[in-house]
């Protein structure tokens, strides 16, 4: 199953120009699945960076706008888009000029993958 999912994610990388990496992690940033091109910045894929999303979600909930769904950070060369699928986090790392809306639209495609992985994580 893992190979199949990895192939799916690899397909996404080739379909979205400028997308460098898709990482599915648990809430601590521990990698469950990772696909990336060689342009992906190593430091943005570290668990200690990815896990800060959990803190951002907690702070976001204080705004009174409901559950935090997506976090988009645009830097000078890269953009990092993280999606709240707790207990899982999906992280997309892309170039700053990459189509953000396209990445957001991918979310629905990933739902079946994420729900089956979330089940596996919840069981363990």
């Amino acid at each position: 199953m893992v190979e199949e999912v990895k192939n799916n994610l690899q397909d996404l990388l080739s379909k979205v120009p400028g997308l460098y990496s898709v990482i599915i992690t648990d809430r601590d940033g521990v990698h469950l699945l990772k696909v990336s091109t060689d342009k992906a910045p190593e430091h943005a894929m570290r668990p200690n960076f990815i896990s800060t999303f959990g803190l951002a979600v907690d702070q976001g909930s204080k705004l009174g706008l409901g559950k935090t769904g997506t976090l988009i950070c645009v830097y000078s060369q890269y953009q990092v888009i993280q999606m709240n699928k707790l207990p899982l986090i999906i992280t997309f790392i892309a170039s700053d000029s990459c189509n953000t809306g396209h990445i957001l639209a991918i979310q629905k495609q990933l739902d079946p993958i994420v729900s089956s992985l979330a089940l596996a994580v919840a069981e363990s």
Binding site: V16, S97, N99, T100, G101, H102, I103, L104, A105, K108
Partner: peptide, 28 residues
Amino acid sequence: FVNHQGLCLGAKGKASTESAGLIAAIAE
């Protein structure tokens, strides 16, 4: 209407804001 990053600027009528990114990608 969609900006260069594929984010929705506005939608009217029976149009979904969720298709914004795909519309920008198709045009690109």
